[in-house]
């Protein structure tokens, strides 16, 4: 009662540890340093993409940075090029094949692994995620020998299978996050209301797994669009995907058309991400 210096001071008794109202200068410095560090990391992540996009508008046939002037000639060249067009079509076709494949297999595998209790579940889990663990070049070599043996090299089915294999573990993991948070009582509740197993799957399980499935599908699309290592070994002259053509262009004719292609790809994935995030909170699962 005598202590009236601060209105919030507690009455007599053991004095609680005071909560510091004012920060020490060291705290402020630490906070500032933290922000600065975060900004630097962000810059580090974004800088290559910015450089790429800016370079793609370079009027000169060099990759000099910063560019002098502004031009869309490389975009025109890329979009008018037959070679690039074929590659875009192939990559698009692969995405259309890989995404549903991975989404279906990944969802079923993840749900089974998350919910099931059967012998060998742990081993199967490890197997489903194993392509993540093995270096890609090893997977690529294996696929090369195998596809060579059955004559699939340089074909769309080969790339379809290869991309699905590489993308599957990402999808499995994404769906497993959703499946782990799915309360089994919800499915029981649906069954108690008269819903058959199939109906429960369609009206309760899949809608609730949707964020994970969408995230998995997105990861599959991005993986398929960006895959180089495995594709390089399995593809051939007739199956040059966009990233492969970017790779060879960058090696042999370093001009801003590669930057233009990359910027287009980036734009596409940003659009897909934003749209997908509107439909489901996939950012929670990714």
């Amino acid at each position: 009662m005598a202590d009236t210096r601060r209105p919030e001071t507690r009455p007599a008794g053991p004095r609680p540890t005071p909560v510091p109202r004012r920060r020490f200068p060291a705290d402020r410095a630490a906070s500032l340093a933290g922000r600065l560090l975060a900004a630097l990391v962000f810059l580090f992540l974004v800088a290559p993409l910015v450089v790429l996009v800016v370079s793609s508008f370079n009027p000169a046939a060099s990759v000099a940075f910063p560019p002098h002037g502004f031009s869309t000639r490389w975009y025109e060249q890329v979009l008018g090029s037959r070679d690039w067009l074929v590659s875009f079509q192939l990559s698009g076709l692969l995405v259309l094949l890989v995404v549903p494949t991975v989404a279906v297999i990944g969802t079923l595998a993840a749900y089974g692994l998350a919910r099931g209790s059967f012998p060998g579940r742990g081993a199967l889990h490890a197997l489903a995620l194993s392509p993540l663990m093995a270096p890609e070049i090893i997977t690529a070599l294996g696929l090369l020998y195998y596809f060579q043996g059955i004559g699939l090299i340089d074909s769309v089915p080969a790339l379809w299978l290869a991309h699905s294999l590489i993308a599957l573990p990402y999808a499995v993991r994404a769906v497993m996050v959703s499946a782990a948070g799915l309360d089994p009582a919800l499915e029981r509740a649906a069954a108690s209301l008269g819903a058959s197993d199939v109906r429960v799957l369609l009206t309760v399980t899949l809608p609730l797994l949707r964020p994970g499935i969408l995230a998995g599908a997105l990861l599959a699309a991005v993986t398929s669009l960006g895959e180089v290592a495995v594709t390089a070994l399995v593809a051939g002259a007739h199956t040059t995907t966009v990233p492969l053509r970017v790779f060879s262009s960058a090696q042999f004719e370093l001009d801003p058309s590669v930057a233009a292609v990359s910027s287009l790809l980036m734009l596409a994935s940003v659009v897909v991400m934003v749209v997908a995030d509107r439909f489901a909170k996939i950012s929670e699962v990714l």
């Binding site: 009582a185 919800l186 029981r188 509740a189 649906a190 069954a191 108690s192 058959s196 109906r199 609730l208």
Partner: peptide, 16 residues
């Protein structure tokens, strides 16, 4: 379960 025509209320509500 879905053929039994019984209602069930769960401890954690289990609302969709």
């Amino acid at each position: 379960p879905h053929r039994r025509e019984l209602g069930m209320v769960f401890q954690n509500y289990a609302l969709f």
